[in-house]
Amino acid sequence: MALAKRIIPCLDVDAGRVVKGVRFEGLRDAGDPVEIARRYDEQGADELAFLDITASHQGRDTLLHMVEAVAAQVFIPLTVGGGVRTCADIRRLLNAGADKVSINSAAVSRPDFIGEAADHFGSQCIVVAIDARRVPGSDSDPRWEIYTHGGRRPTGLDALEWAERMAGLGAGELLVTSMDRDGTGLGFDNALNRAIAARVEVPIIASGGVGELAHLRDGVLIGHADAVLAASIFHFGTHTLSDAKRFLAASGIEVRLDAIAEPS
């Protein structure tokens, strides 16, 4: 087995600036996406994910400039999501240097958009972001429901059926976020990830809830995720990407260590 499990730091972006406080030692301008991306790249990040939370159109142009600037300096895959609604949105992001786009609400409002996007650009660059919550009272035989709008709006869609449908339409990868766990630091909802992984052939990125390195390990070993995404444990300098890589390697998980300089 040689394909490495991926670790993906995620950055929230507003008008081209990274928000949600990123604190690296010795980094003065904490909001500069290029500087942050470079730092994660040096630490051995396998990919980078940017989630755009900008509302304005002006902000969107700024996002494109940011993607261009990052892509000119960092030579690992970049996934950009947030407000992607049309094939024109996708084209602009790919032309700016994104390798994949993640699509969330637009897939719920019009599922065929995923099929069109995959036909047009290839499944390899279409990531469907799935935000799911456990259905209350379903603990013995858990079920999950799809939510949109940052976990506030229920859709009535069953998460496992939805995942299968999205993969069938041409999603190349699923980014699965547990809205129950997001921001809690309690770890992934591994039952959710595992259930989806068993249902589809495409790779799964686990997201939502990482508070310590053991959660990344459990995401792979228990949740069967192909990639694990985290934000705050890396942003606040609690752990570096290199720490995470070494921890997973010590747990017997195949990771990419080539990029990590040995500690001097």
Binding site: M1, A2, L3, A4, K5, R6, D46, S123, Q124, G172, E173, A197, E201, V202, P203, I204, H224, D226, A227, R256
Partner: peptide, 13 residues
Amino acid sequence: LPPIRIPHMGWNR
């Protein structure tokens, strides 16, 4: 081991 995922996506030797 579980079946391989398709597409083959990520860093390989």
